[in-house]
Design a protein around this nucleic acid. Sequence first.
DNA 1: CCATCTTTGTGCACGCGTTCACAAAGACAT
DNA 2: ATGTCTTTGTGAACGCGTGCACAAAGATGG
Lengths: 253, 253
Amino acid sequence: MATGRTHRPATRSRGIPEATVARLPLYLRALTALSERSVPTVSSEELAAAAGVNSAKLRKDFSYLGSYGTRGVGYDVEYLVYQISRELGLTQDWPVVIVGIGNLGAALANYGGFASRGFRIAALIDADPAMAGKPVAGIPVQHTDDLEKIIKGNGVSIGVIATPAGAAQQVCDRLVGAGVTSILNFAPTVLSVPDGVDVRKVDLSIELQILAFHEQRKAGEEALPDGLPASAAAARESTDKGPDGDVPAVMPA
Amino acid sequence: MATGRTHRPATRSRGIPEATVARLPLYLRALTALSERSVPTVSSEELAAAAGVNSAKLRKDFSYLGSYGTRGVGYDVEYLVYQISRELGLTQDWPVVIVGIGNLGAALANYGGFASRGFRIAALIDADPAMAGKPVAGIPVQHTDDLEKIIKGNGVSIGVIATPAGAAQQVCDRLVGAGVTSILNFAPTVLSVPDGVDVRKVDLSIELQILAFHEQRKAGEEALPDGLPASAAAARESTDKGPDGDVPAVMPA
DNA sequence: CCATCTTTGTGCACGCGTTCACAAAGACAT
DNA sequence: ATGTCTTTGTGAACGCGTGCACAAAGATGG
């Protein structure tokens, strides 16, 4: 998972668990694909396979939404697409601004996934005066000076931050000040926001580091006899200063 | 959180909880910033604030690594940077290939966060023959035909997929076939991989949909009298066919 | 050497999320 | 109408993650 909720630690929104909310888009995507192939109904088993989750989990997730689905048959695809869309708030469209039109910002602007599902790019904003007026993905870039005017004028409540880390908090503050209450942050920084504002972060570097951890672990186990990586771990734990392995434990203090 | 582990449901790797592993990069970033300011030691309280987490959680996380830290003083910054780097496997460098050099792939290639922390872009790969040889971020793009050769020749074990959704599974299969065991997937698809291969996914569209859900909920609560959103929920739940609200419940079957 | 003060490391309890396993519900055939 | 068969919806148990609260450890000053 490339993201982590920052705010709102464990608030079950209207009785729907956060973990379930995070999976709804996954189901929606699978259902949309089925819909395009004109498949009328689908069982929890099939849909779960398509979404890459356990079928029991999927049924429980749906049970939070209501009792859609027919026993012995499955779920009506079109009906479920509609219900999930409504639950996620995708029946209305959400104007979104992207701040920071560098490589990543431009990539996001060109990303088709936005428009396809209820999201509309209301504006692209950058601090570089040279960018102003230049069209990216068919939309002219506007200058940061007009940020507040743009947000308020378009009733934007969702902002995407794709600036360098150093500018992120400042941009965030201005967005929030202008009325934005949901932020998707691509800058590698911890943003601090007032209560009531949701922040989700996407961090490429963190994802890679997590993969590296598991990769290293795989490589380590491979080198061992096989089947009992516990021996090495036990040997390490027998020392009383924690798992240092073969590393010189020079504590520079 | 923009990502979710697909494989390896809850395997505590070498005793370190997955949730802790996911936070280590966060701590590392904060520590690196302190290190650059030549701060010698830091307390769990300060570091936790910088990383945006609870200080008790941070201390517990570190306790899984060992008993670094000095009571009454705090943690030695340099030492901790080294220990976490080692734990994450960042003391070696990891060659990475990026497949799919469109807007997003190019943005990733240009992203500084890669090189700065143990990751080296070994190759850029694209299926478009017109891209072949063209330099992106100073690295010439190579054609998909040579994918296996590139992977094996460079000992690559981490692959990044930035292709359109339709090509992702096929690319994934070829990467895995050539020896890649960790994949970071930006394509909006569920990848299926054999056991032993880790997949993490980053999906912009999903993140936005989760934000939209919370945004909708905020807007809904705002419209209510104040303080008792339970009334509306109760009214809905009083019907026996689940929460449909004011929506025409046409069940197309 | 002793007292005090700061900060770590962790035992414990609690809540969320996952999974199993099964009863209830409906479709369908006879 | 009745029985059979499929698939949903959910009660219950379990495990992981979080946060509180405190005892242990060490630094520091007298």
